[in-house]
């Protein structure tokens, strides 16, 4: 495998060759945030998020730490409940449901379970199941959640694990893998579920610098070939700009800037964004 530097330079040169999948912005969005607020105790983290995510769109969320980037996607994954506002997934309200009399009440576990199927997530700290082999990390959700026959699940999982370059480590346990390998398993585990939208929560932040490249390479491959929408919370600025259809800059609990990579990065007048980018570029 090429080193990270090499990959980056080739990538710079071949930017134009990346097959851009056209995002149809006239289609119905698969996810809509409608004036979503979130507070943790007294801390008002998100102050009115409005965001539409379109099928197969690749979105990168950037912003200073503590700005609530992760919270945005955690609410969509149903790990965090919004304090106010609605999140609509495929036309259905995620966190609220209609009671018999038309009144909207807090979603039940069952309601969440019904909608969550379309969403997958990769975590900063991998969260692999330590008591299962790598293969079974992928197989178990397929057989238990999707009720897929065991041999079919094994086939699919093997295929996906080879795709992320771990086809030869099927029977190992997560504890014997490097961070980069763990994160690739975590991606395979999320991918076998075939979500319509995939969330990436700072997936390279917990990795040693030399292991970042192999993980980004997998995401790059997915972005190029997969139909699914992707939302990435990331600190890998160059990478985000390279593959994102749209970049969101989150500041002060709101989406301060939104647009194509070049719009946001090169032409934004927002001084906070300039400041933020300057600090990153300096690294």
């Amino acid at each position: 495998m090429a080193t990270r530097e090499e990959e980056m330079t080739t990538q710079d040169q071949t930017d134009e060759e990346v097959v851009e999948q056209e995002v149809d912005y006239n289609a119905n969005p698969i996810v809509s945030y409608k004036d979503v607020h979130k507070s943790f105790g007294d801390v008002h983290v998100l102050k009115g998020i409005n965001l539409d995510i379109y099928p197969s769109e690749k979105i990168a969320i950037i912003g200073p730490s503590g700005s609530g980037k992760t919270t945005i996607i955690r609410m969509l994954m149903t790990l965090e409940e919004p304090s106010e506002g609605d999140i609509i997934v495929d036309g259905e309200n995620l966190w609220k449901m209609e009671k018999g009399n038309g009144e909207m009440v807090r979603a039940s576990d069952k309601h969440l379970h019904g909608i969550r199927d379309d969403i997958g997530m990769v975590f900063q700290h991998f969260n692999l199941f330590p008591h299962k082999t790598i293969l079974n990390n992928c197989v178990m959700p397929l057989t238990s959640v999707r009720k897929m026959p065991k041999n079919e699940a094994i086939e699919l999982s093997k295929e996906m694990l080879s795709r992320v370059g771990l086809g030869d480590k099927l029977d190992m346990y997560p504890s014997s893998l490097s961070g980069g390998q763990k994160q690739r398993v975590a991606m395979a585990r999320a991918l076998v579920m075939k979500p319509k939208i995939m969330l990436f929560d700072e997936v390279t932040s917990a990795l040693d610098p030399e292991l970042v490249g192999e993980v980004l390479e997998v995401i790059r491959d997915l972005a190029r070939t997969e139909e699914m929408a992707m939302v990435m919370v990331t600190h890998e600025m160059d990478f985000a700009l390279e593959i994102a259809d749209r970049v969101l800059f989150l500041d002060g609990g709101k989406i301060a800037e939104s647009g194509s990579a070049s719009e946001v990065i090169e032409h934004s007048e927002n001084p906070r964004l300039q400041d933020f980018l300057k600090r990153f570029r300096a690294d």
Binding site: M77, T78, L79, D109, H113, R116, D117, I119, G120, M121, F123, H125, F126, N127, L128, F129, P130, H131, M140, P141, S144, V145, A186, R189, A190, M193
Partner: peptide, 30 residues
């Protein structure tokens, strides 16, 4: 048992019962 384990199994859309039986309890037993 690490909270991330619950979060990962929610992300895989396991039911409460499946989370407990397949992910949390096997690790807690140890």
């Amino acid at each position: 048992v690490d909270k991330g384990q619950t979060e990962a199994s929610i992300a895989l859309n396991m039911t409460r019962f499946q989370r407990m039986r397949l992910v949390i309890l096997p690790q807690a037993l140890r």
